[in-house]
Amino acid sequence: MAQVELTRHLFKFFPQLEGQRLEVEATTIAEVIAGLEKLAPGFAFYICDELGRLRTHVNIFIEEERIADRHRLSDPIGPKARVFILQALSGG
C-alpha cells in the first residue's frame, strides 16, 4: 500500500480526502492516481491532462525523488512507499 500525501490546496476541491490516511494499492504512480480517482471522482483531471500526462505545474515525489516519467507515470513504487503530490513552485 502506497501512502499518499497531498498538498492542502487539493483539499479545497476534494474535501472528502482531508484528514484521511490515504493508502492506495499501487505498483506505479499511474495506479496511485487511478486509486485516488476512485476515492474522489474528478481527481485525476486535476493532476493530469487528457493524455494522462502530469500537468506542467504539478510535481509527484516518491519519498524524496521526483518522478522521472511525467508522460506515462510509470515510475514503480515499493510496497510501503510514501508518495507526495504537490504543486510545483514554478518561480516568481
Binding site: H9, L10, F13, F45, Y46, I47, D49, R55, H57, V58, Q87, A88
Partner: peptide, 8 residues
Amino acid sequence: GHGHWGAK
C-alpha cells in the same frame, strides 16, 4: 483557469 490544476 487554475494555475496548477488546469481549466475547470
